[in-house]
Design a protein around this nucleic acid. Sequence first.
DNA 1: ATTTGTTTGTTCGAAGTACGAACAAACACA
DNA 2: TGTGTTTGTTCGTACTTCGAACAAACAAAT
Lengths: 361, 361
Amino acid sequence: MGVQKGNLDLIRDLNRRLVLDAIIRDQPISRADLARKLSLSRSTVSMIVNDLQEKEMVIELGMGDSTANGGRKGQMLGFNPRSAFLLGMDLQKNRINSVLADLSGTVEQKETIPFNEDLDELKTILSRYLERIEPDYRVLGIGVSVPSIVKDHQIVVDAPSLGWYNVNLAKVLSEAFDLDVFVMNDVNAAAFGERWIGQSSLVDDLFYLSVGTGVGSAIISGGDLVAGFEQAAGEIGYMLTEEDIKQGTVYEKGRFGTFERKITSLLHTCESSKEARNRLVHLMALMMSNVCILLNPEKVIIGGYYETILKAMIPEIQGLVQRLVPISTVIEYGALGEDASAMGTIKGLLDSMKDQMIRKI
Amino acid sequence: MGVQKGNLDLIRDLNRRLVLDAIIRDQPISRADLARKLSLSRSTVSMIVNDLQEKEMVIELGMGDSTANGGRKGQMLGFNPRSAFLLGMDLQKNRINSVLADLSGTVEQKETIPFNEDLDELKTILSRYLERIEPDYRVLGIGVSVPSIVKDHQIVVDAPSLGWYNVNLAKVLSEAFDLDVFVMNDVNAAAFGERWIGQSSLVDDLFYLSVGTGVGSAIISGGDLVAGFEQAAGEIGYMLTEEDIKQGTVYEKGRFGTFERKITSLLHTCESSKEARNRLVHLMALMMSNVCILLNPEKVIIGGYYETILKAMIPEIQGLVQRLVPISTVIEYGALGEDASAMGTIKGLLDSMKDQMIRKI
DNA sequence: ATTTGTTTGTTCGAAGTACGAACAAACACA
DNA sequence: TGTGTTTGTTCGTACTTCGAACAAACAAAT
């Protein structure tokens, strides 16, 4: 299953993807330069480029500059991100945040839609949405994020806020609309989104902290999500301090985690109490110090509903962490706001289609 | 670089590996069953099996049982792990632990050699060792672990206990002996070793805790090592508690981490003081609780020099953790003892050669 | 003992990929 | 105008997997 079988289709897809990625990265670039950079023959590159041009994924941009030693000028090639579009949706209690973006992640449309957490309602909303946009845009697939543990990027295991339990959302939607569907946890999706769009270059080792109704996190290591054995990694809201153990704190099912209870309460009082604010900074620094020495991320990105409060605290937290532990991790606030999750599902979908994407256009 | 170019050699290597892995996993198995299981044609499987037989990696085990509906019996195939061997070495202050194992990880020879941390000395030791075994065994490569951050599985960045700084150990050794060389951090290697050999089946989400001179850890997620941005993930020895922050503890360069100082001191007193033992259990449970809610590993494996003390504490720690946080992680003590690191380097080497391994035999 | 239907493993031609040599066109510079 | 260089295409070659066809091996029914 996980292991790829080798056949001619595979090398075809692989090299097409290789050429396309090189064009995206280094555009404008000529066929000859591509061949050199990728160690492919010029004939192979030519053939592949012709194919990508037919699919309108690649366009010719005109002649390039003259080379140092004279010689014929090359036809410069560029990427056309608008050759396909993807729909990303973040499902939450009462509302859906939806984003339509092209292959480069440029947002084409976005919308917040009221939502009563009903599956048939979702299908109706999607159906209307797709009908409206399909004539103009070639839609490749749908990414969906939910506040839940998600199995195999298909099954919503338990989403109390939506009232969904063990729903194979990917199957339901892909059968209804004949499109690829990719389901993710909302915090993981937000991490993917911030990593894809919010940063100047792709950060491969990232810790994403979401502070909202609860406190959750997502871990990206080497560009991949750390999912955990039961897809439950990142549950930082249950973090304990030594005091909790001494007091004999016991985990109770259905209750919010110890750490997130403390944080939430402090967030509500920190604007009137200096002491609360101080303790909030300390708790955040403690958590981040321990996370950073354990995971050694390049960046920590914070997102959620408390932007004003938390953004102002970052310098203090950063300073404290750097005095406490031997790391150089940079702490930032996320750039995408409410769209982070929806954007992230699109990136997740794109990654999951990987080499086969080109074939589907 | 990281992206594989597609050509005929690739699909050849990929399918050979696919067939070999299936034989290893499901032996005894016939060519026809392989074709069905792997969705390859019978002709392709036959050709590949012939090739693997020439390399003596696969052997025929005789006719299989008759099928339900009659029909010709199949020739059963099996894996011959002794078609190649690998050398694993764990370099430490004063000594080298070396292990020679076959492709299945069965130990053929093992030895502990005195070592004065000198690079030329290492070459001499290796040279003598290889001369002695090469006539009998086909040696594929060398795995080396060191107590240091390692870059690109080649460069020993800083190993104070060996006195080595920025040494390209892989280059030095592979040029001297014309073999593949794979360098790893010793704790990461031990995690790989325990995961490979100590367990009945491969655990993909694992937290390995090493308690020795210091306290370190290795994280395996989805079967891959979590390395961190500067290859410094797992430095759990620097973990802090709320008390540390309140007391204004500051990180000092060159000093052992706060957590490992506490643990080490408690390990020295816990056999005479009940209070110390209690605090040790509590600190370990605190650390593991927080690690487990963050990473959601399937297992925690402990290794190092304090087997007797720590093994006896595991039930208490496990019980405490399960009351504190909503996880089902199992805590165990490692099975490989001192050989864990050397064995792990062999697994690391095998994984790094991946599909190209067969070509090299 | 014979027939029938099934399964196995091999052989051989077909399809499809990248490659490399050869080629014409385009270009800078002398 | 000539020379050397570079680009992009064309075409035959090498290599892989695949699928159909085949003979051999086997169990169960006749």
